[in-house]
């Protein structure tokens, strides 16, 4: 594995930066510049780099889609949220439509925000492409076909001309995908979701989204600690505060930054990546969450430091 690339990081539904939100960012950037003049684009870039990401950037709004770059020519994606469209456009721009490719797509579950990108996934329409869609859900194929039935969408699943196959993944039964060993884990979420651990013998990435940790059962906690054990990156659903996750949003199937830090510390993971951001929160709130989480990691650290980041659309993690 070479890197992880995020194409969609938002939970529940896509969001977009509004004109008013963009105006607020520009106002702050101009105010922070204090009348400074920039002689080149490089100086502008350097200035923007010096600013808080919530001001000079945006976490973005596509729903879940994460690429694991393996170093092989075959693509590996986690989930088919709206970010899958952006991924597909980039892949087509790289190869052109006439060059057949293989896409391995591992799906956490069939809630809409995790599958809504498929109808816009252009490689699926192109003959010669090979697409393998994996998941723990028995209804995966049904759900993907159904979302393109009329009147939900004008183009039927049968319009896909790529060679598409569905592969059912079984809990605790490893399989091999694009040269990686993949372990599947059932997670607590309405209608079930599945987490995936990818290992290539050198690096380990865990994709664990839409997973509530009830905290009451030590055996369940131990199971996730094993699943995250010594991972290089854990992509973790940190949608809610812990207070919300155990009270008004209990049983909504999501987790918190606090539980993410604890599980990663217990598992001696190296990097916790906060993921599946709540759509109601803005960039400043996500940056605040990131700062809080880094502070929590610092004050509760008992072993090696755990790196903490907050995923944004376009972010890359080198492995």
């Amino acid at each position: 594995m070479r890197r992880v690339r995020f194409w969609g990081t938002r939970g529940s539904l896509p969001v977009a930066l509004t004109a008013a939100g963009l105006r607020r960012k520009m106002t702050r950037l101009l105010r922070n510049a204090e009348g400074r003049r920039f002689a080149s684009d490089r100086e502008i870039e350097s200035y923007l780099e010096s600013q808080d990401f919530a001001v000079a950037g945006t976490y973005g709004g596509h729903s879940s889609c994460v690429e694991i770059e393996t170093g092989s020519p075959e693509y590996v994606l986690c989930d088919l949220g709206s970010g899958a469209r952006a991924f597909a456009q980039a892949a087509l721009a790289r190869h052109g439509p006439a060059s057949p490719q293989t896409y391995h797509i591992v799906v956490s579950h069939v809630h809409w925000d995790h599958i809504m990108g498929l109808p816009f996934f252009i490689p699926a329409y192109i003959p010669g492409n090979r697409i393998r869609i994996y998941g723990g859900h028995p209804e995966l194929e049904t759900a993907l076909r159904r979302q393109q039935d009329r009147p939900s969408f004008p183009v039927d699943f049968r319009a896909f001309k790529a060679d598409i196959e569905f592969v059912r993944l079984e809990q605790a039964q490893d399989c091999e995908i694009a040269g990686m060993r993949v372990t599947t884990k059932l997670q607590h979420h309405a209608g079930d979701s599945y987490g995936y651990r990818f290992e290539d013998g050198r690096r380990t990435v865990v994709y664990s989204t839409d997973s509530e940790h009830k905290l009451a059962d030590p055996a369940e906690t131990d199971g996730f600690v094993s699943f995250f054990r010594k991972a290089d990156v854990v992509i973790f659903d940190a949608m809610y505060s812990l207070a919300d996750a155990v009270s008004i949003r209990a049983d909504w199937g999501h987790s918190s930054n606090i539980v993410g830090v604890e599980l990663c510390q217990l598992a001696e993971a190296k990097h916790l990546c906060l993921f599946h951001h709540e759509p109601a929160v803005d960039d400043e709130a996500i940056s605040g969450l990131l700062a809080d989480t880094r502070r929590l990691e610092e004050i509760t650290r008992t072993g090696a430091p755990l790196r903490v980041s907050a995923a944004y659309d376009g972010m890359e993690i080198e492995l």
């Binding site: 505060s241 812990l242 207070a243 919300d244 918190s256 606090i258 929590l296 004050i299």
Partner: peptide, 15 residues
């Protein structure tokens, strides 16, 4: 102080 920070980060100080 450390526990107060954990309360703040978890938002338990709000509930």
């Amino acid at each position: 102080p450390v526990v107060a920070e954990i309360f703040a980060i978890s938002r338990f100080d709000k509930v």
